[in-house]
């Protein structure tokens, strides 16, 4: 049901956007906005991979028995959750060169956004791992399954479907957060629309198209997440 609603919403938003783009005089500024959209999509996809990887690694690391690992993960999570993303982006781009680490704008943006959301995602993963019933652990001990195997084959496969709603919400948040990358000189949709606004003064049209584009991206992620969740929980025979 949710899948169908999301699909319809995504399709309608896309069609409305297309119709608006074709039938009016938006052609002046649309190419620039679409070029910006490509940058937004590129940054989003790259940082999404980093974000998911960091979420799983540090989320599980936080539950480790080994103290240094647990503490490193905790410090990472607190630092990146506690600071503002814009400050982190600035820091990566303008301050890291002082320490001899030169990052390109894209690298700084991907690292900033990915690491920032990885910290939020880690909490989602931690919650999901904790939500796996205690009986599973006891059963694994009873069956004499070695520790690392039982984590990899018993706990994590059961935790992944639980993380999907949370992670897909965070992915939408992350796409919206990429609007900040103009701070490190990248021309994404948001910055392109500000530029086009200064050239053409068609504020309402330009920003409506921009809002529409972001709305479309969000609907696609929502749709994808719902589909993935349905697929992964299908064998459980749950009725959604």
């Amino acid at each position: 049901m949710t899948v169908r609603i999301a699909a319809i919403a995504a399709l309608t938003a896309f069609l409305v956007g297309l119709a608006v783009a074709t039938f009016s005089e938006l052609r002046v500024f649309l190419p620039a906005l679409l070029r910006g959209a490509v940058v937004t999509i590129k940054i989003s996809v790259l940082s999404a991979f980093l974000f998911w990887a960091m979420a799983f690694v540090t989320g599980i690391g936080r539950l480790s028995k080994i103290r240094p690992i647990r503490w490193t993960c905790a410090v990472y999570i607190e630092v990146f959750r506690g600071t503002s993303l814009l400050v982190i982006l600035f820091w990566f781009f303008f301050v890291l060169p002082e320490f001899g680490v030169l990052l390109s704008a894209t690298a700084a943006a991907v690292l900033g956004v990915g690491l920032n959301f990885g910290a939020y995602g880690a909490e989602v993963v931690r919650g999901a791992v904790a939500a796996v019933p205690q009986g599973q652990r006891e059963a694994a001990v009873a069956l004499n399954i070695p520790k690392h195997r039982y984590m990899l084959r018993v706990i994590i496969p059961q935790a992944i479907p639980v993380t999907i709603p949370g992670l897909s919400n965070l992915t939408i948040e992350m796409i919206k957060a990429t609007a900040l990358v103009s701070a490190v000189t990248l021309v994404d949709i948001t910055f392109a629309s500000v530029q086009q606004n200064q050239i053409h003064y068609r504020t309402l049209d330009i920003f409506l198209v921009t809002l529409m584009l972001y709305y479309c991206f969000a609907q696609f992620v929502r749709f994808g997440g719902a589909m993935l969740e349905e697929r992964m929980t299908r064998h459980l025979g749950k009725v959604h």
């Binding site: 919206k176 609007a179 900040l180 948001t190 629309s193 809002l211 709305y215 969000a218």
Partner: peptide, 11 residues
Amino acid sequence: RATPLLVQIFF
């Protein structure tokens, strides 16, 4: 909820 705050501020 589906659109970035920065764009809303600009808007």
